[in-house]
């Protein structure tokens, strides 16, 4: 996917941001994170890359922590041309989903568990 030309939206340091737990709940910014969103055109789960811009392969996602995570989120949030609703999700240091929303994020990444043939898991195979 193309790299968007963006200027970051200011993230106020003390303002609660959408972090983890599916982007619907607010949480503390602690531990390793990946920035994820849905693709504007297909709705598929996408991930923010180190080089900025989005990928649909979680293995290519940037893993960040702390202030850096918020800073990158602000870049991602400014890119409305490709994505919807970016938020920080909890991951292990190796970038696999972790924490409370592990199951949710695994399903977002791979596709419905009942329809292995329809999700991204099928496209990879």
């Amino acid at each position: 996917m193309s790299q968007p030309a963006v200027t970051p939206k200011a993230v106020e340091p003390n303002k609660a941001v959408k972090i983890a737990a599916g982007g619907v709940k607010k949480a503390r910014n602690k531990g390793a994170k990946i920035i994820t969103a849905n693709d504007l055109f297909t709705g598929a789960a996408i991930y923010w890359r180190k080089e900025r811009g989005w990928t649909d392969d979680i293995r290519e996602a940037l893993v960040v922590e702390g202030e850096l995570a918020l800073a990158e989120l602000s870049f991602a949030a400014a890119d409305e041309a490709h994505s919807v609703g970016p938020y920080l999700m909890d991951v292990e240091p190796d970038g696999t989903p972790s924490g409370r929303s592990r199951l949710r994020e695994n399903i977002r990444e791979a596709g419905p568990t009942i329809h292995p043939e329809y999700g991204r898991q099928a496209q990879r195979a």
Binding site: L40, G43, A44, A45, E80, A81, I107, R108, G119, R120
Partner: peptide, 28 residues
């Protein structure tokens, strides 16, 4: 307008919802 950037997602969301279009885990 949303695709061209003339509408933000915040503005577009209520409009798409009024047309029955949700955004779910993997797709619309």
């Amino acid at each position: 307008r949303r695709i061209a950037g003339a509408l933000t997602e915040d503005e577009f969301k209520p409009l798409r919802l009024m047309n029955g279009l949700y955004l779910q885990l993997h797709a619309y």
